[in-house]
Write a protein that binds this DNA or RNA. Structure first.
Length: 424
RNA sequence: GGACAGGUGGCCGAGUGGUUGAAGGCGCACGCCUGGAAAGCGUGUAUUGGUUAAUAGCCAAUCGCGGGUUCGAAUCCCGCCCUGUCCGCCA
């Protein structure tokens, strides 16, 4: 969410950000309306506060007179009249503020200056690692997975619905190995604090990280309570310090968490319907960082390098893509995607999205730090990225490590966990 | 799920209708004192909004959250949330 002062003092920067996202027609009118409402709001507040100050003064006179045993009927009547006027003004203020908040919560973050303008065709591959395998003769993961007994999509659909997956045998063991291998790497090598968090969260948490109110249709909600299944561990982990003020020396903070993730994928019907590339429930290890504003860019590069290390450890060829403004997510100011090449489906698969949110989430979630004792609190910068998403890594391994006899070799790094060097 | 008890500033803890943003203590910061430190003394120590060049002043709001009563609510009433204890239930 943007600060009201942003609307007031930097409306042009906001408009330019929306233009670079290619969304000026959508958000231009929203910004216009916000500017008008902001003016109305301030006028009303001034009027209300002036009357409140008058009433407070009268109230004190009443108190003194009563204590002295004098009559205060005149002052009481006057104060009552002021109270009615205040109530009337506040009745107009409430809808103004509600509408303003609704509007502000729906405006995306401003992309950083070095983010390319335009839609996804303007995305930039900034570097690559490893050599993608020739696609010739390689079967897609769902075929290998089924024939080796690692993946049971039919029964997943039967017990839950399409888009729900059952991993079996060494397939299940491989998923478990991802959790252990990734959490161990991030905690012991990179200093992340491991967290195990609820996968059901309340509405303020979902608003804090930006999933709500805008993307409610994409979220699974519990039927009789205001609770939601998380689409990523980013939600509970980033909200850990919601409504808190941290000391400067606590920054940067770094957390990693395994969690299942639930996504309705409304509007994605027909895309990636085969295999495990787009499912309603999947698992991943998420990395979340908080830092001081001046460290944002460096922290993003650091986060990205941590996610890359996982892929290098697995020996999977990948590329790093800087997303263009129009392809950058709602709350993000700058995002790098990590894409792994899966030769069986012949596609680059997004396995991690590393984003710097600047103070966008911190404002919504009210996460601050005090730069020095006695100084005013400031909003932290938040970052997050997958490290990494399991199903697509599973798919990439089944395809990249596929052998001519139909078996799959297990990446070196996972063997201690999987307990085998070959699947099938 | 049921019955009690409770939610006040960084912490502890007063405060049951009136000038209380909130006594007192602790902690913290700065100053004095000291060879240095401790003790002691003094000063200061919340957040948000409005106004403003200002994180200077001034005004407003905030004692779990929301509503109500009242000229006036931390204090009274209603609803909700959370915590603790006991009972029930359960992996």
């Amino acid at each position: 969410m943007h600060h009201l002062r942003m609307i007031r003092e930097q409306a042009e920067a906001l408009r330019d950000g929306m233009r670079r996202r290619g969304k000026l027609e959508v958000y231009g009118p929203v910004i216009d309306e916000s500017e008008t409402l902001d003016r109305t709001r301030r006028q009303t507040i001034q009027a209300v506060e002036e009357k409140k100050a008058q009433r407070n003064a009268l109230t004190q006179v009443v108190g003194k007179k009563k204590k002295a045993g004098e009559d205060a009927a005149v002052e009481m009547a006057e104060a009552r009249a002021l109270g009615e006027a205040i109530a009337a003004l506040e009745a107009t203020l409430a809808p103004t503020e509600a509408r303003l908040e609704e509007l502000l919560l729906g405006v995306p973050n401003i992309p950083l200056p070095d983010v390319p303008e335009g839609d996804e065709s303007a995305n930039v591959v900034v570097r690559s690692w490893g050599t993608p395998r020739e696609a010739e003769g390689i079967k897609p993961h769902w075929e290998v997975g089924a024939s080796l007994g690692l993946l049971d999509l039919e029964r997943g659909a039967k017990i839950s619905g399409s888009g729900f997956v059952v991993y079996r045998g060494t397939g299940a063991r491989m998923i478990r190995s991802f959790m252990n291998a990734m959490l161990d790497l991030h905690t012991s090598e990179f200093g992340y604090e491991e967290c195990w968090v609820p996968v059901v969260v309340n509405r303020p948490s979902m608003v804090g990280t930006g999933q709500l109110p805008k993307f409610e249709d994409d979220m699974y909600a519990l039927k009789d309570e205001e609770l939601f299944l998380i689409p990523t561990a980013e939600v509970p982990v980033t909200n850990l310090y919601r409504d808190e003020i941290l000391a400067a020396e606590e920054l940067p903070k770094a957390f990693c968490a395994y969690s299942p993730c639930f996504r309705r994928e409304a509007g994605s019907a027909g895309k990636d319907t085969r295999g495990v590339l787009r499912v309603h429930e999947f698992d991943k290890v998420e990395l979340v960082r908080y830092c001081a504003p001046e460290d944002g860019e460096a922290q993003l590069q650091l986060l990205l390098s941590h996610a890359e290390t996982v892929l290098q450890g697995l020996g999977l060829p990948y590329r790093v893509v800087l997303l263009a403004a129009g392809d950058t997510g709602f709350g993000s100011a700058k995002t790098y995607d990590l894409e792994v090449f899966a030769p069986g489906v012949g596609k680059w698969l997004e396995v991690s999205s590393c984003s710097l949110f600047t103070d966008f989430q911190a404002r919504r979630a009210n996460i601050r730090f005090r730069p020095a004792p006695g100084e005013k609190p400031r909003f932290v910068y938040t970052l997050n990225g997958s490290g990494l998403a399991f199903p697509r890594i599973f798919a990439a391994i089944l395809e990249h490590y596929q052998q001519p006899d139909g078996s799959v070799t297990v990446p070196e790094a996972l063997r201690p966990w999987v307990g085998a060097d070959r699947l099938g």
